[in-house]
């Protein structure tokens, strides 16, 4: 009954519900910061943002829980079938794991900073990741046994670390979109309720930067683990295979970003656009390379 695929489907619907609620929260339009300033008791009865926001967080947390159990169930299914259990052994599982990382990262962020409006963007990206996974043909969704090259303990750590870095870049991209919307509204002097729920520009900018500073070393670590695996499997740590080259390209792109941030005054709008561009490159590295370019990673 509770097969992994069923749980993955359930995850999809829960994330969809969470996105609707977060967007609803933003649309109702009061920022958490304002509320904090006014203090409790100032909230009028007509203000729906508090219950909607709470429900959004709750549904997201439940979604993450179901996502976690889906991955665990898939690990169990894999173990019975093949004796290995990494629940990120094909494109579908990898997408579901990226969605998991994005949502987990977002909940950590909400827990730490209490800014719910970000959910409308970041949870959306997690939802899109889950949705894109479910659009894959059924034969990509099932737990096929691993090809000999992948059948190694390296798969547990190399893949999970790399995918987590993608999730961090996805968060930065989502924050980039948010920044641009808020900036546009401010530039036009719009008093629209949609962006008033957003945190201030500097906060969005800094959080995006923070996400990239987390993703950047993780990707480096992921690439290095991949090199170590390649060295162990094929006798060479670097062979300019399209996937590894693209992950290096992504790393270089964020390397340029990290260094640009060190120059005075580089940030804000430019950084936001750049982080969206970076996310597009990540998506190409993650999806495009597998389908458009051939190479050693053709299987994953």
């Amino acid at each position: 009954m509770f097969t992994a695929l069923f749980l993955f489907d359930l995850t999809f619907w829960l994330y969809l519900a969470a996105v609707v609620l977060y967007v609803g929260y933003v649309a109702v339009g009061r920022s958490g910061l304002q509320l904090a300033a006014e203090g409790p008791g100032q909230v009028s009865a007509s203000d729906w943002s508090v219950p909607v926001g709470q429900l959004a967080t709750m549904i997201t947390a439940v979604g993450l829980l179901v996502n976690t159990s889906a991955l665990a169930m898939r690990a169990h299914e894999r173990y019975l079938l093949t004796g290995t259990f990494a629940p990120w052994s094909n494109q579908y599982e990898a997408m579901a794991f990226v969605a998991w990382s994005i949502i987990a990262g977002y909940l950590l962020l909400e827990f730490k900073y209490g800014i719910k409006a970000i959910g409308a963007f970041v949870v959306s990206i997690g939802f899109i990741a889950m949705g894109a996974a479910s659009l894959l043909p059924y034969r990509y969704q099932t737990a096929e046994p691993l090809v000999p090259a992948l059948n190694s303990y390296w798969i547990y750590i190399h893949v999970s670390v790399t995918l987590t870095s993608y999730a961090a870049f996805a968060m930065a991209g989502g924050l980039g979109v948010m920044y641009l919307l808020k900036e546009r509204a401010e530039r036009k002097g719009l008093q629209s309720s949609v962006t008033t729920a957003f945190p201030n520009l500097e906060t969005i900018d800094e959080l995006g930067y923070k996400a990239i500073t987390i993703g950047f070393p993780l990707l480096a670590f992921g690439i290095i683990l991949g090199a170590m695996w390649a060295n162990y499997a094929w006798g060479g740590y670097w062979s300019w295979d399209p996937k590894e080259t693209w992950s290096l390209i992504v790393w270089l792109i964020y390397g340029a970003y990290i260094h640009a941030r060190m120059t005075r005054g580089w940030g804000g709008r430019r950084a936001a656009i750049y982080s969206i561009f970076g996310l597009l490159m990540v998506i190409f590295c993650f999806w495009g390379v597998n389908f458009l370019l051939s190479g050693l990673h053709a299987y994953a």
Binding site: T245, I253, H259
Partner: peptide, 19 residues
């Protein structure tokens, strides 16, 4: 820093050609 940023971008572009 400017050189560093330029080199990162240049390497990324050149590596892209190779893929």
């Amino acid at each position: 820093l400017k050189l560093a940023i330029s080199l990162f971008i240049a390497l990324a572009i050149l590596a892209t050609i190779g893929t």
